[in-house]
């Protein structure tokens, strides 16, 4: 028993265990998602996160220890974002034709995300720095953190809001847009990318390649627009 404990305390401090568990949780989540017929609620990010959070809680492992291993996966977000240039290039003719619709969707999606988040939270009595942390939550994380700081929000809270926004977008978009009978993959992908950044884009790629390509563009453009628009919106409203 003490030997098993000693082995555990060694492994629990090593990046290898947490990196392996991260990939294991994701593979398990993928299989569960397939078994559930790719149901929107069976989102692999959501399942993997719940599985890993449960393991951390049961073993009393601090997040920092977990991240020692998981950072190798987290790091790949950068090169993956650069890689979004490929679907953008492959869909170039479609993208060129849809320039005006994309511009309209970008403005509408970005503004509605900001104003409705601030408005709804305000109605529920959220005030001050917590409220302002909501403004950039549809933008991709590195942009959102910088903007949050600039408008007087709490960057760590914004980081959590960004991730949760992405998960909400990935879970609700497909059933909602199917119900509404929206068949244009360009519109579906682009709107999800604007509203739910990379997690929405990851979801869009799983649904349809065109949706994924347009979602990546929406994410990239909204990163830029949020940086410009959020200080203006916050300045106007407060």
């Amino acid at each position: 028993m003490t030997e098993a404990l000693a082995l555990w305390s060694y492994l629990a401090q090593e990046p290898l265990l947490w990196l392996t568990l991260t990939l294991g949780a994701y593979v398990t989540a993928e299989i569960l998602s397939q078994l559930a017929g790719r149901h929107a609620l069976a989102n692999p990010v959501l399942i993997a996160v719940i599985l890993l959070a449960a393991v951390l809680r049961l073993t009393g492992t601090p997040y920092n220890t977990y991240f020692e291993g998981a950072q190798f996966v987290h790091f790949m977000l950068g090169p993956a974002t650069v890689g979004l240039a490929l679907p953008l290039y492959l869909n170039l003719s479609k993208v060129r034709r849809a320039l005006w619709p994309m511009l309209a969707a970008l403005l509408a999606g970005s503004l509605v995300a900001m104003v409705s988040a601030l408005g709804l939270a305000w109605l529920f009595g959220v005030r001050g720095a917590v409220l302002l942390s909501l403004a950039p939550k549809s933008a991709t994380a590195p942009v959102a953190l910088g903007v949050s700081e600039a408008v007087g929000g709490l960057p760590t809270l914004t980081a959590a809001l960004v991730i949760l926004t992405g998960i909400v977008g990935a879970v609700v978009s497909t059933p909602m847009l199917n119900m509404l009978g929206v068949k244009d993959w360009r519109a579906r992908g682009f709107a999800v990318g604007v509203a739910a950044h990379g997690i929405g884009t990851a979801h869009a790629f799983r649904i349809h390649p065109t949706a994924g390509a347009f979602s990546g563009i929406g994410m990239g453009l909204n990163a830029v627009l949020t940086a410009v628009l959020a200080p203006l919106v916050v300045g106007l409203l407060f």
């Binding site: 849809a98 969707a105 970008l106 509605v112 995300a113 609700v172 244009d184 360009r186």
Partner: peptide, 21 residues
């Protein structure tokens, strides 16, 4: 606010895209 605004933003984006298209 998180759930409501994300739903509204997707709807606004899709609506604007389809309208202008």
């Amino acid at each position: 606010a998180l759930i409501g605004s994300t739903v509204l933003a997707i709807l606004a984006g899709v609506g604007a895209f389809l309208l202008v298209a």
